[in-house]
Amino acid sequence: MSALELRDGGSDYLGKGVSKAVSNVNTIIGPALIGKNPTDQTSIDNFMVQQLDGTQNEWGWCKQKLGANAILAVSLAVCKAGAAVLNIPLYKVY
Protein backbone atom coordinates (compact mmCIF):
# COMPACT_ATOMS: atom_id res chain seq x y z
CA MET A 1 0.00 0.00 0.00
CA SER A 2 1.22 3.47 -0.80
CA ALA A 3 0.42 6.44 1.41
CA LEU A 4 1.05 9.97 0.21
CA GLU A 5 2.07 12.77 2.52
CA LEU A 6 0.49 16.13 1.84
CA ARG A 7 3.16 18.84 1.57
CA ASP A 8 2.68 22.55 0.84
CA GLY A 9 5.28 22.93 -1.89
CA GLY A 10 6.63 26.38 -2.68
CA SER A 11 9.69 27.96 -1.14
CA ASP A 12 8.82 27.89 2.57
CA TYR A 13 10.54 25.05 4.42
CA LEU A 14 11.98 23.87 1.10
CA GLY A 15 8.44 22.92 0.06
CA LYS A 16 8.08 20.47 2.94
CA GLY A 17 5.62 22.46 5.05
CA VAL A 18 2.45 20.77 6.22
CA SER A 19 0.02 23.67 6.63
CA LYS A 20 -2.42 22.06 4.18
CA ALA A 21 -2.43 18.81 6.17
CA VAL A 22 -2.97 20.71 9.43
CA SER A 23 -5.83 22.64 7.82
CA ASN A 24 -7.43 19.35 6.74
CA VAL A 25 -7.29 18.11 10.33
CA ASN A 26 -8.89 21.29 11.65
CA THR A 27 -11.56 21.79 9.00
CA ILE A 28 -12.44 18.34 7.63
CA ILE A 29 -11.24 15.43 9.78
CA GLY A 30 -11.80 16.88 13.26
CA PRO A 31 -15.37 18.06 12.71
CA ALA A 32 -16.28 14.74 11.05
CA LEU A 33 -15.12 12.75 14.08
CA ILE A 34 -17.02 14.69 16.73
CA GLY A 35 -19.29 12.30 18.60
CA LYS A 36 -17.55 9.13 17.38
CA ASN A 37 -16.42 6.57 19.94
CA PRO A 38 -12.60 6.73 20.23
CA THR A 39 -12.47 3.12 21.38
CA ASP A 40 -13.58 2.00 17.91
CA GLN A 41 -10.19 2.64 16.29
CA THR A 42 -10.66 0.45 13.22
CA SER A 43 -13.99 2.02 12.32
CA ILE A 44 -12.61 5.55 12.69
CA ASP A 45 -9.49 4.76 10.65
CA ASN A 46 -11.59 3.20 7.88
CA PHE A 47 -13.95 6.18 7.94
CA MET A 48 -11.08 8.64 7.55
CA VAL A 49 -9.37 6.70 4.77
CA GLN A 50 -12.31 5.44 2.76
CA GLN A 51 -15.04 8.04 3.26
CA LEU A 52 -13.36 11.33 4.15
CA ASP A 53 -10.34 10.92 1.86
CA GLY A 54 -11.49 8.26 -0.59
CA THR A 55 -8.50 8.42 -2.94
CA GLN A 56 -7.11 5.21 -4.40
CA ASN A 57 -4.30 4.26 -6.74
CA GLU A 58 -2.99 0.95 -8.08
CA TRP A 59 -1.70 0.01 -4.59
CA GLY A 60 -4.86 0.77 -2.65
CA TRP A 61 -6.03 3.67 -0.49
CA CYS A 62 -3.39 6.35 -1.02
CA LYS A 63 -4.72 9.15 1.23
CA GLN A 64 -3.83 11.77 -1.35
CA LYS A 65 -6.70 14.20 -0.71
CA LEU A 66 -6.27 14.76 3.04
CA GLY A 67 -2.69 13.50 3.37
CA ALA A 68 -1.40 10.38 5.04
CA ASN A 69 0.43 12.60 7.52
CA ALA A 70 -2.86 14.21 8.61
CA ILE A 71 -4.74 10.91 8.82
CA LEU A 72 -1.94 9.20 10.77
CA ALA A 73 -1.72 12.05 13.27
CA VAL A 74 -5.46 11.90 13.94
CA SER A 75 -5.37 8.10 14.15
CA LEU A 76 -2.69 8.30 16.84
CA ALA A 77 -4.68 10.94 18.75
CA VAL A 78 -7.79 8.74 18.57
CA CYS A 79 -5.79 5.79 19.89
CA LYS A 80 -4.59 7.86 22.83
CA ALA A 81 -8.12 9.12 23.51
CA GLY A 82 -9.47 5.56 23.36
CA ALA A 83 -6.93 4.41 25.91
CA ALA A 84 -7.93 7.29 28.19
CA VAL A 85 -11.63 6.40 27.86
CA LEU A 86 -10.84 2.78 28.76
CA ASN A 87 -8.52 3.96 31.55
CA ILE A 88 -5.67 1.77 30.31
CA PRO A 89 -2.10 2.63 29.33
CA LEU A 90 -1.66 3.38 25.63
CA TYR A 91 0.60 0.36 25.11
CA LYS A 92 -2.25 -1.98 26.16
CA VAL A 93 -4.73 -0.76 23.55
CA TYR A 94 -4.05 -3.65 21.18
Rank of each mutant, 00 (worst) to 15 (best):
M1G: 14
M1K: 10
S2C: 08
S2H: 15
A3W: 00
L4T: 14
R7D: 10
G9Q: 13
G10F: 10
D12T: 11
Y13E: 09
L14H: 08
G15D: 05
G15H: 15
G15W: 07
G15K: 10
G15F: 10
G17S: 12
V18E: 15
V18S: 15
V18G: 13
S19P: 08
K20N: 15
K20Q: 06
V22M: 13
S23M: 10
N24A: 08
N24M: 14
V25N: 04
V25Q: 11
N26E: 12
T27M: 10
I28D: 12
I28T: 14
I29Q: 07
I29G: 03
P31Y: 04
I34V: 08
G35H: 11
P38T: 04
T39H: 02
S43H: 06
I44E: 12
I44V: 09
M48L: 01
V49E: 02
Q50G: 07
Q51H: 08
Q51M: 13
L52V: 09
D53V: 02
T55W: 07
T55M: 06
T55H: 07
E58N: 08
W61L: 09
Q64W: 13
K65S: 14
L66H: 08
G67T: 12
G67I: 07
A68V: 13
N69S: 12
N69Y: 06
N69W: 01
A70R: 01
A70T: 05
L72A: 03
A73E: 09
V74Q: 02
V74W: 00
S75H: 02
L76A: 14
L76H: 12
L76G: 00
L76D: 09
A77I: 04
V78L: 02
C79N: 06
C79W: 01
C79P: 01
C79K: 10
C79Y: 05
K80Q: 09
A81W: 00
A81I: 00
A83Q: 05
A83R: 03
A83P: 00
A83D: 02
A84M: 08
V85M: 03
L86T: 06
L86D: 09
I88T: 05
P89C: 09
P89W: 01
K92G: 00
V93W: 09
